[in-house]
Nucleic acid binder design. Structure first.
Lengths: 164, 164
DNA sequence: TTAATAAAAGACAAAAATATCTTTTATTAT
DNA sequence: ATAATAAAAGATATTTTTGTCTTTTATTAA
């Protein structure tokens, strides 16, 4: 004998807040994975997708797609078969994180207008132009000066987290 | 007598780049609209959704939803009926743009971890923590120090764009 | 007090991002 | 050579974001 009391019925809100971070989930997973693999590479090990996904807390199959893309663009190294997995060679370890971000999220974050205007420029600025430029520059600087292998020691020493 | 030459058949790429800007489209439209309405309010005018959408180059019905939300949260003023429309009162004109952004996109951009980690903090930082904090602070500063009415004169003088 | 106007609300649709599952290909240890 | 392993590729499903259309409600000018 169950029933719904109309007096306390809840209403579904149609306009829920977006949940917007700076980077897409794809990009977040990519960056976490890259730092994890780099640290293992520093220790001379290859890592399988399963371990990576577990350690950085990401959906395995989805992360696989992301790493496939990075692999196709030669940003990460991989070998199939037993004892295979993902790793970075010395050259790749020195690549900036910016390469990962643009491979996955595109260049919008480095070049785009804060208000989403196509024709926004120095000579035809949007209201936020000057202030937003500072933000963009800071992001660009951060991503260009962070190499993939930069945090290896800190990660090995347990100074940093990549999980949850 | 048409046919497909298998030697030059194209392949559909499955993994297309995300197109990620800092703010969601919703938020971009919101900010552009707010600046447009503010400028009109400065001139003592109310504006209808149709004009706003045209002037800031956004889908009308979608923008309507966004402004409805802002209106419900008392961030923008509106009146129905003839000569009705949207406007800002003096108090609202002094509100920071941050209020608009968080109403629409949430607080992730002000507080979130760059790598998307829930437990990232000063005592348990992700590798990007310190650098990302600077970015977040810059964004927060920009949005807190930009009032909704800040660019009215510049917009009236045609110094800034909001279109395309 | 009525017709016209314009926002609010509700329902729905399309596109993009995120996620999963299955099959194929390459590698290696046996 | 063969079986086992692990990434690559393909296909499909789900969720979120973005976008549209219709109906309702409030306001105002006539």
């Amino acid at each position: 004998m169950s029933f719904i009391n109309p007096a306390i019925t809840f209403v579904l809100i149609t306009f829920t807040n977006n949940y917007m971070a700076i980077f897409s989930k794809t990009c977040e997973y990519a960056m976490r994975a890259v730092f994890y693999v780099a640290q293992k590479s520093h220790e001379g090990q290859k890592v399988g997708i399963k371990e990576i996904a577990e350690q950085i807390n990401s959906p395995e199959a989805f992360l696989a797609k992301i790493l496939q893309k990075l692999s196709r663009e030669r940003l990460i190294q991989s070998v199939k078969g037993p004892n295979g997995g993902f790793y970075f060679d010395a050259v790749s370890l020195n690549r900036p994180l910016a390469d990962i971000v643009s491979a996955v999220d595109g260049n919008e974050i480095f070049t785009g207008c804060g208000l989403g205007l196509t024709y926004c420029s120095e000579s035809n600025p949007c209201p936020l132009h000057d202030e937003f430029k500072k933000v963009r520059n800071q992001i660009t600087h951060m991503l260009n000066h962070t190499t993939i292998g930069k945090f290896n020691l800190g990660l090995i020493k347990g100074k940093f987290t990549l999980n949850k």
